[in-house]
Design a protein around this nucleic acid. Structure first.
Lengths: 254, 254
DNA sequence: TCCTGTAATATGTCGGAGTAATTGACAGAG
DNA sequence: CTCTGTCAATTACTCCGACATATTACAGGA
């Protein structure tokens, strides 16, 4: 069920501007609108301080009802991207008000060409958080955590990282580490950053095959956590993050 | 904060159970609804997996229109607290889907009696992030950053930390450090955590006067950053966080 | 027992009407 | 000329009632 009714192209001849929002399956209309506006803001198409058209005008331009449009605006407001006030309209907030760590915002940021500087910031944050997470995991993991990590590692060995199974195993491995930290805040944060950073992996893969075998580095992290060596775990994870940074940088920077 | 009386709101009278949502000035109705439901979820009043009443029923119970109720639900959905599906209703998502680092979610978490374990998690994360931020600030600060920090420090000396001016100066000081990191992601994250952790300061203050003079510790951080000594900056900030943790723990745990 | 089609139900979407609040302009006082 | 208070216009906000759509649950048949 792609396009609803092209029957209204009569008005296309009239204004030629009604850009209907594409909505995939399982995706609500207001979600699609939020995605469209969110990516537009994150890509810089709307700059902080800009004022969006009035509700009625914008909703009509998108060919949606005001209800759907407003619900989308509430989503953007909840994520700190915009702010609406009577008489003043809806304006894009300054960048430091954005919830840049919100998973959906991160997805919007990586929907188009991601800002190099922002990717650098995320890697920097990851280099801070992930080793600390590994340290905590080494201190708090139990038998069950170790088993899950071992299984994931085995799956990574079987399937290469180029396959979906392999990437799933990689995610499982890192998630197991996060679970072992017993820290919900750290867990949520690290999962978001990890997912976002892995978006860049797609570009990297597209450029060329992975030049390095990632298994040994993962094994080093696993051994340190399993043996309860906190310092070694933080160290090994730091190496892992650094390598990912190098690969991504060389793939993006040229 | 809110005088939300968890009492059973004995509405045995004829008003049929309309528990009107209180909405302060500058606070939209849907925002008030989101706040009410958000705090209810964060406080455990609704557990993950629970299904909220139908839109029509719930909206009528709150004595608001379905539109306003729906916009509030969109806000909660955007923050990962709930998920709505046709015929299935709106259910509370598992805790690991919540955007715990969203400023508004943090505010909701601290609206009532905050969960001890969660506070512990936040302090742990802060102990990871803040020293790293101080390290980066020491490496990247410029003349202007140093001037702002120095001014804030002077203001902290003039006004005690018990006054609003003093706390504002403290915030300025820490914000100056974050700005000096030149890392947007780190900035947003640290600002959220810092604000949330400072909520606990209110309880701490209420319990007893601050037992320690915080100025010398702040000076140590400032000197290290100003002189560009990254390791010393991280160290001094670590001390600062540890001291805050001790104070809060003794005030909360006894 | 399993599968398939059908019906019920709650969310999703729509359009319009009326309310409330903020801003910007204007007039008057200092 | 500047400042302050009031007023009006504009805009988002809220409410309402109806219809569309998707998903679940149940009943019927293989």
């Amino acid at each position: 069920m792609g396009q609803d009714r092209p029957s209204t192209d009569a008005q296309a001849a009239e204004n030629g501007g009604s850009v209907k929002v594409a909505r995939g399956p399982g995706r609500r209309l207001h979600g699609a609108i939020a995605h469209k506006l969110g990516t537009a803001i994150l890509s810089g198409q709307y700059a902080p301080g800009d004022i969006l058209s009035g509700e009625v005008a914008f909703a009509e331009e998108l060919d949606v009802s005001r209800s759907a449009y407003r619900e989308a605006i509430q989503v953007l407001t909840a994520k700190g991207l915009v702010e609406s006030r009577p008489k003043a309209g809806t304006r894009v907030l300054p960048r430091n008000r954005w919830n840049l760590l919100d998973p959906e915002v991160l997805a919007w940021a990586f929907a188009g060409e991601p800002d190099i500087q922002f990717v650098r910031d995320l890697f920097e944050l990851r280099a801070i958080v992930e080793p600390a997470a590994a340290r905590l995991a080494a201190q708090r993991r139990d038998k069950n955590d170790i088993k899950i990590m071992k299984d994931a590692l085995a799956a990574m060995r079987r399937h290469t990282l180029a396959t979906e199974l392999g990437r799933a195993a990689d995610r499982d491995f890192h998630n197991a580490i996060l679970n072992a930290t017993r820290n919900d805040a750290l867990q949520v944060l690290s999962a978001s950053i990890g997912a976002a950073v892995n978006w860049t992996t797609q570009y990297k893969q597209r450029a060329r095959a992975l030049p390095r075998n990632p298994i040994p580095d993962h094994v080093r992290v696993f051994d340190a956590i399993a043996s309860g060596d906190a310092a070694a775990a933080a160290d090994a994870m730091g190496v892992l993050v650094d390598l990912a940074l190098e690969d991504t940088a060389s793939a993006m920077g040229g």
